Amino acid sequence: MEELFKQFTSYLASGVEGAAAVIIAFAAVEATWRALQVFFARPAEPDEAKEGVRLRLARWLAVALEFELAADILRTAVAPSWNEIGKLAAIAALRTILNYFLQKEIEQNSQRQRAVSGPSPLQGQAAPGSADVRR
Rank of each mutant, 00 (worst) to 15 (best):
Q113K: 14
K50C: 11
Q7D: 14
I24W: 03
I73Y: 04
N109R: 15
A77F: 12
A28C: 14
I23Q: 06
I24N: 04
I85E: 09
W33P: 00
S81G: 14
G18C: 12
G15N: 02
I23R: 01
E48F: 14
D47A: 15
L94K: 08
W60E: 10
L4C: 04
G15P: 00
V63Q: 01
A79N: 13
A89I: 07
E30N: 12
T9Y: 06
S10F: 04
Q103A: 13
G124C: 08
Q37D: 13
R112M: 09
A90V: 09
G129D: 06
K87V: 11
D47S: 14
R75Y: 00
E17C: 02
L69M: 10
V63N: 03
F5W: 10
T76S: 07
Q125A: 09
L61F: 11
L102S: 05
A115P: 02
R134W: 03
I23S: 02
L4P: 00
E3W: 00
R42S: 09
Q125M: 10
Q111F: 08
A131N: 15
G118H: 00
I85G: 08
N99D: 11
A90Q: 03
L94G: 15
E84P: 01
R135A: 09
V38A: 01
P46W: 03
V38E: 03
R75L: 10
K6D: 13
V16G: 08
T76Y: 00
F101A: 05
L57S: 05
G124T: 15
I73A: 11
R59I: 08
I85W: 10
L122I: 13
L94A: 14
R95D: 08
P43R: 04
L88P: 03
P128G: 09
A41S: 14
E17W: 00
W33A: 07
A28H: 05
G52R: 14
Y11V: 06
V133C: 06
T32W: 08
V53F: 05
G118Q: 02
Q37M: 05
E45C: 01
A92I: 05
N99L: 10
F5V: 13
A49K: 03
A90H: 02
Q123I: 01
D47H: 10
V133H: 04
A89H: 00
K87Y: 07
G18V: 01
R135L: 07
A44S: 13
N99S: 10
V22W: 04
E68V: 05
A89V: 06
V38T: 06
